[in-house]
Every structure is written in structure tokens, then in C-alpha cells.
Design a protein around this nucleic acid. Structure first.
Lengths: 210, 210, 210, 210
DNA sequence: CCATAAACGAGACGGTACGTCTTGTCTTTCT
DNA sequence: AGAAAGACAAGACGTACCGTCTCGTTTATGG
């Protein structure tokens, strides 16, 4: 079909050094955590990983891509070690309580320094680099959001959410405010806050009943 | 009292060249639009503005700051020329309609290419650089959000919004989802979408009891 | 006694691929002719010869050595095909005429582009790398010079050259000037020039007779 | 006549840092002496001189050019400090003695380690890079050779050299053999050797008639 | 109405990092 | 076991910008 030889990042190979790949992931995450994303350089990653620069350029095409994969790998790693329950929203029958619980966990995660630096860096890069942004969403964000969709659909079946509601939009009512506060420092992030979001979203701003 | 020699950006002056400042703003905005933020350099701005590099370093401390001021200036400029209505949310008595109107205007603005490149760049920088992020919010975002607070308070007085609602949080129910879709490419941005957000936020996801 | 593992070039073998050796010689000579010695790389030679890099490193220890052997081989090759008269200086009884004839042939050879590029490259490398320089001299230069020694000795026996003259030094009077003009571009190289050299050398600069 | 703007090395300037230039010369000469020419790198020179790489690339276009200027400067430097007699061949009336004296001095100079490394490097580079070779000759070699031309012309007027002899060629009879032995390691370099060269050249190889 | 001091354009400087290229070694796979 | 293929660690290449630092040259009061 098409030539895809010289430009593309992965020359494809079984001879790839697993050891180097791991070392690069570790170095990238460590550096981003220690000195921040903009001052993390490919040279720095290579040096810290004990790897030639070319080994990075051979397999990735940018600093952002390296970090993305490193971060994804980190996720898989910790998912696996945590007993590989790949997240799921509980369904106790009490939608509000379930959502509040999960959002509180999200608050904790957002404040976990191990995750904060790299995910902020990736999010920032994604704002300005559409391709990377979409990849970030597809690989990291969307899977989590899908869990809300599932829970909301269950709630619709249980009659706790109006049937005409689109769950993919509905979830944004409580997820996006949290995301924006985190991304843009538009406000403090607390359990109270996320609890409130759930209440407002479920019951609306307008007065109920007559 | 205190040394304020070398660090501070503005040595303060009346002799500052207005012509240079304008040229720098123009060059910065043009370059960000043309080649993107990361490939916009201070050297490039200086060259394009026909200005010495030192003239930039004298008055600003980073590329981001230059762009921030340039963007603020752009806002003032167009506000002024547009008849200096410095934005306000109409109050026709129909809260839903008023919010939908304003959000539709926001959708248009987010798609205006003149604004898109620089504001994305600033937002991205702000994600990763807390100080700049807070400045971005304080100078650009918060003033707009305040208008929602005002309108919601009026709605509370009119009995269209429950009195126990915190307007600063409430506005995030429809503003943040839009912001996130724009920032992170998590979904398409349409009038339908923003209309839906307003409806969901005002009336809640849960069934209204009779 | 001594480890002689990793350093030595020839691990000695009868299994050595003759085809590869020839391909490497050809590729080396072609590349030096086409792009010049400094831009000839071992990678390039390997690629052009359709050979793994290791096959070169296994048998030679440097680019210069490869070229040296390739060049020697070229010499043998063309000597063989030319009827394998391995050079000799004629002895017609007229020393001056014989020397002029041979030097004119040397002038032609020095201008032959097939020889020029590799021999210049080897000469240059030899200037700066004593070991290689001595090898270059021993294998390529000295055999030719020996022919002059022989002819001069014959001339001494014939009474055409003073018996106290050291032929090894004497030959340098006409050979070295030509060599220097070729190596260092210190002057043009013509038949007239080499004829003149022979005359000057044989009869001296000082006036003859009384 | 012609545009010679962007490519050429010297952008011309009075703002050039004399200190940097000197430091670069010193570093270049020191490195060539210590690790040899091929292992002398521009990065190395810059680092040792405490100078940015760009400062080298701004003013010179290659490692060879840097070294050439450094070497020329070294020559001027030592000429100046030696009482700036810029070489001259004595004229005592005894041509043979005068030439032997000067050639013995040349032998000493060729063995002076301060000069050996850089001049070998330049000579080698010049063999393979014609432009540089010609520059090397014009700036370093030819001025010295001219002194022989002058002395030989004086000898012609004194009747010590035949009037039909071309001095520019004649001088090569004793200069080139020495040069070749030095450049190519074709033989040892001693006072005896250069004395012999002078005798052979002046009185010729052929027997002198009675 | 100059003098003087600042801001200015220009651009050289010491540096850092870029992305590419080559070296010489090591490893995998094929024959 | 030798060879092709090519990944690897190392490090130099030449370029692009960084932020600092002179250089003259405006320019704009304020003495």
C-alpha cells in the first residue's frame, strides 16, 4: 500500500531490548517528577537510563510520546500489582453515594504526587498538540469515563436517572468540574466539593416539586 | 529597603517605547498562530518585531508572560472596538435561555482561530506552571465566570435557582464540561451540546418527583 | 603468554568468505572515489558491499587498513591483467632518457583518477598515523623506489653515476620533488618538469668544467 | 560583484572577542599535541577554551581551519618573540655551507614537538583537501621557499649556480627529499642526510668531466 | 537647548539540548 | 561457526535558542 519505512518511529523488531525500555520509562517518570516536564530532556532521560540517545529516537518520536507510554505502563504496572481490578464503580443501589465514593478516590489520586507530575505534563502537551491530546484521552481518560457511563445506565434501569438522559454527557456534570479545577487551578479540590457536585448534578439547580 | 535590582522584570519607566511593545504583541500573536507556541521563540518574536532581544527580556520574564499580556491586550483591543460592552449575561427572566445564549456565544469564540492558538497555548502552559496558571485564571477566566455568578444570584432571588446552591460551584456544571471538551478533545462542541448541558444542570439527572 | 583475543584483526580462518572480501574492496574503492575518504564510512562500505559491519571489523581494524588492502589488491589486480610485468626501469644505456621515461609514466599514473583518490587518502592518513605511514611506504612505495636503486647501481657500474653516490638518497633528488608537488600542491606536474628534475639531478646546479 | 553573504565564516565584526580567539588557538594546539588531530574535536576545543561551540562555528568553518589559523598565529607569535627576524638564508659566499646550515635548522624544527603535531595534521588534511592544501602552501610553505629562491639567485649572480637553472625547481632538489622523509617516513632525518642532499644537488650525480 | 541617562537595535557570548550520524560491540537469526 | 542484519552505548556533529552582556544610536526629559 504505502511506504512506511524511514520516518516512522517503530522499525519493528523482536530484537528490542526490554531492559532499555524499562530503564527509559523509569528515568522519564523520575525526571518529570524531580525537575518537571519542561526541564526533562531526552538527553537527560538517556543519560539517566544508561542508554544511547538513538535508542530513544529509534522507538519514540518525541519526549511526550515517551512519557505517554511510560505513564500507561505505570498504570498497567500498578493495576496488575493491585490485584488487577481495573477500576469499576460500585453499585450499591445508592447512585449518589457510589458516585461520591469514586470521586473522592479520584480526588486522592489527583493529589498523589506519583501521578500528578506526569499526568499534568501529558495533559498540558495534549492541549496544544491535538494528536497527542486525542491519544491521551483515548488511552487514559475514556476507559475511566466509560465506567461512569455503565453505572449511569444501570441507574437508568433502576429508575434513578431519567431515561432520556445521555450518560456520556451526564457524567461530565461532575467529572469535568473536578478536571477543570485540577487542570487550571480554578478552585480547591476537596471531598466536600465533589460531594456537592454530585448532589447538584443529580437534583439540579432549579427548585424541585411545587 | 529591599534590593529590587536584578530580578524584577519592570525597571519601571515612562521612556518605554510604546511602538516596540505593540510590535512585540503583534509578533507574538502572529507567530503563535502561524507556527504554534512551542516553535515560537523569543528570538523569533524579537526579529519579527524588529526589536532587540533585550527589549523583551527587560519587560517580561518569559515567553508565556509575553503571550499572556499580548492576549490580554488583544482582548481589550477587540472589546474596545466592539463597542466596549465588557460582556454581561442578559437577564430576560428565562434563566435557561439566557445561559444557552451565552454558552452558544462561547462555543463560537472557542472556534475563532484568532483566539484559539494563543489561548490554548496559555492554557497548556498554565497546566504545568502553576503560577502562570493562576494568573491566567485570575485575569482571563475568573472575570467571565463572575458574570455567571451574578446571573445565578439574580436567578436565586427570582426563585429560579434553589437558595442553598453555591453559584460559584453551580456554574461549573455547564461551563467546565465545555471547557474540558475544548481543552482535551474529549468530545465535539456544538450548540446542541451546550443546550443539553444547561438543561441537565438546571433540572438534574434524577427523575423529578410529582 | 599473552592474551591475544580481542585485539588482533585476523582470527585466522579458512572459512573466510572470499566473495565478501572482494565486495568490501570494491565498495571501499568506489566510495573513496565517489565521496572522498573522510565521508567514506565503515557503515557505508558494509552497506554497499552487502555485508554486515562485523564482517569488516572481524578482519580489519580501521577504515585505513581496509583501504590499504583494497588498494594493494587493486595494484596486484591491474599488474596481473597488464601482463604482470611488475614494473621495472628500462636500461637502454642512456640513464637520463630512462629516468625521464619512467618519471613521465609516473606523472600519468599520478593523474589517473582511479589511483588518485585512494592513494591520496592513504598518504594523508599515513602522514598522521605513523604505523600506517610506514606500512604504506613498505608495501607500496619502497618496492618502486628499489627499482631506481637498481637502475642507479647499474649506472654506477657503467660509469654514468659517481661511485661514491648513495643510490637510495640519489633517487630522492628527482622522485621527492615530484612527490611533494603531488602531495602538497606546491607546483604543477608536467613532463617538462620531471625532465628538468632529471637533468638538474644528474648534472648538478653548480657550473661544470672550468 | 558577487553575493558572499550567508555562507562565509566571518560575519565580520569589531565586537569579536579577542580573548576567546586566543583561548581557542591555545586549546586547539594543546589538544592536537595531546591527543592527536583526529581525536581533537570542535566540542573538545570549545570545552577546553571555555567557549561556546557557536563561537567557533561563527568564525571558522572547520576544525582544519581553526588549526591552520592557530598554527599561523603560533608562527607569528614565536617569530615576534624571537626578535622577529622572519627567517632569511645567510649569504657567506659559500652556497653549500649556507644551505647546509639552513637545512640543519629545518631538521631541528621538524623534530620540535611543539610544531610537529599541528603541522603534520595540517599537511595531512591538505593532502586530501585541495583548498586547504593550497592555503597551507601559500601561507606557510611558499614564504620559506621564496628565501631559497632568493639565495639561489644571488648564487647565480656570483657564478656559483648555472644561469639557466630555474631556482624554484632547483630548491626542490634538497627541500623535497627532506619533506618527503618527514611526511611519509621514507627514511631517517639527520644532518648527514641533508648535507649529502646539498652536495648531490649542487654537483650532480654524474661524474664531472676533467 | 543642550547634556545625560534610559531604552533601544543589534548581535556576540557561554551554554544546553536538539535530532542525526558514525563508531565499535553485542545479539539474534539464518545457513 | 561464519555471516547478514541491525540494536545497542557512546559521543561528536552542526544548528537553534537560551538568557546575559556589551556595543553604538536614538530619544526625551530636566538642568
Amino acid at each position: 500500500m504505502a511506504a512506511q519505512k524511514s520516518v516512522q518511529p517503530p522499525p519493528s523488531s523482536t530484537r528490542r531490548s526490554e531492559k532499555s525500555r524499562r530503564a527509559i520509562y523509569d528515568a522519564a517518570l523520575a525526571l518529570v517528577a524531580e525537575v518537571g516536564y519542561p526541564r526533562t530532556t531526552i538527553e537527560g532521560i538517556a543519560a539517566r537510563a544508561g542508554v544511547g540517545k538513538q535508542t530513544i529516537y529509534r522507538w519514540w518520536s518525541s519526549k511526550a510520546e515517551v512519557l505517554m507510554e511510560a505513564f500507561l505502563d505505570l498504570g498497567e504496572q500498578s493495576a496488575q500489582s493491585a490485584g488487577h481490578e481495573p477500576y469499576a464503580i460500585p453499585d450499591t443501589g445508592d447512585l449518589a453515594a457510589d458516585l461520591k465514593l469514586v470521586l473522592r478516590a479520584t480526588v486522592d489520586e489527583l493529589k498523589d504526587p506519583r501521578f500528578e507530575a506526569p499526568s499534568r505534563a501529558l495533559a498540558a502537551e495534549g492541549v496544544v498538540n491535538e494528536q497527542l491530546g486525542r491519544e491521551f484521552v483515548a488511552k487514559l481518560l475514556e476507559p475511566s469515563l466509560q465506567l461512569y457511563v455503565d453505572r449511569l445506565r444501570a441507574a437508568q434501569e433502576a429508575g434513578d436517572v431519567r431515561p432520556d438522559i445521555d450518560p456520556r454527557i451526564a457524567l461530565e456534570l461532575f467529572v469535568s468540574p473536578l478536571a477543570q479545577r485540577w487542570l487550571q487551578y480554578t478552585g480547591p479540590i476537596t471531598y466536600d466539593y465533589t460531594d456537592t457536585l454530585v448532589d447538584y448534578a443529580l437534583y439540579g439547580l432549579a427548585p424541585r416539586g411545587q
